[in-house]
Nucleic acid binder design. Sequence first.
DNA 1: TTAACATCGATATTTTTTTATCGATGTCAT
DNA 2: ATGACATCGATAAAAAAATATCGATGTTAA
Lengths: 207, 207
Amino acid sequence: MEISIATLERLPKYLRILKKHKEEKTVNISSTAIANELYLNSIQVRKDLAIVSKNDGRPGIGFDVEELIKDIEEFLDLNNKKDVIIVGAGRLGQALMNYKEFENDISIVMAFDKDKSKCNNKTIFHIAEMENLVKKLNIHIGIITVPKEEAQNVCDMMVKNNIKIIWNFAPINLKVPEDVVVRNEDLSASLSVLLKGIELNKGCKGD
Amino acid sequence: MEISIATLERLPKYLRILKKHKEEKTVNISSTAIANELYLNSIQVRKDLAIVSKNDGRPGIGFDVEELIKDIEEFLDLNNKKDVIIVGAGRLGQALMNYKEFENDISIVMAFDKDKSKCNNKTIFHIAEMENLVKKLNIHIGIITVPKEEAQNVCDMMVKNNIKIIWNFAPINLKVPEDVVVRNEDLSASLSVLLKGIELNKGCKGD
DNA sequence: TTAACATCGATATTTTTTTATCGATGTCAT
DNA sequence: ATGACATCGATAAAAAAATATCGATGTTAA
């Protein structure tokens, strides 16, 4: 079964509330309950879960919370922290470096900036050092949090250093070779949707 | 014509490259050219543009860059800066306060934190002061950049102070009354898609 | 025990979004 | 002029996503 990006984006949301329920000692949870919390449709929840879990829900009872957590985490290959570098140690970069929600998913092993001295108990390397450091470390994921003027340059350096997956926070469309995947975190796009939110007023509570 | 969220999210991307082309003195641009830059389909671009602009493209020539910019900006009601408050003046909050891309869209008129003394040439008010300050200012948009533990509290305060649109960066599902719109900026969801990106390898260059 | 109920999964339907087709229009080089 | 070409918009088709229907299963409380 092919998983869609939409489903993929919902999985962490399921995970989040499942973990909350686990903390509260909930053993079982129904798709309806999950759906209500996330302002989604329960059928959608069941379909999503069916993709990532072979554990059926029990009629009248719901799904086993712990099993679901395990299955989703396994599907997303979490708890198998991936090494990541980040370039751009400004405010946004630092925010990401300290974002607790990522702690189980990725490990930011190295940070670069044009301003070498910056730090927050982590060494920030100068961008020029990337060449020597990254290639041999077998890291394939990079985050770009530099101003848009420098983003393409940074991207090119990453590509040269064997980075294959790029999470780009700069508002610019990066040019990359075929085998490199870019995901743009486009805050302006989000803002547009938000500001039109009043008129549309749909699909917003849930995401 | 109803506009979809997907289209809405693409508009800022169009705007961005149109502005770039305007700077380069391009007068006309074809839907194909736009599509190529954004890794989209040209038909999709034309359909999107048809929704927001009455200016037809000219066969053999393309669209008038300046007119398109004007039409998209008008549609998104930009250049009519909206007043916004932000709660949470940590790294992420500061990053947003200084994000240049937003400058024409929103004006962050007031920032709050539980740590009053923080600032960066802008006064950061204590959260408790929200009650006195925000209600009378007729501000309806709020950004939440506090840790998830405090997010619901902050949200409740915003609602009490007449905020109707909330941009939430905390990884939690906020409970709000019917007439309040929430948009969650869910970085974990993005990360999930990113990390699965290799397998899917689609729809990622474009967004 | 049994009747009312909650919940499920499978299949079908609807809706939304994306992409293709194609005739029309207008440009540009010869 | 005129023929080859680029590009458009409108309509149609295809693909993807969300939602509804419904019989089956199992729970719970009288």
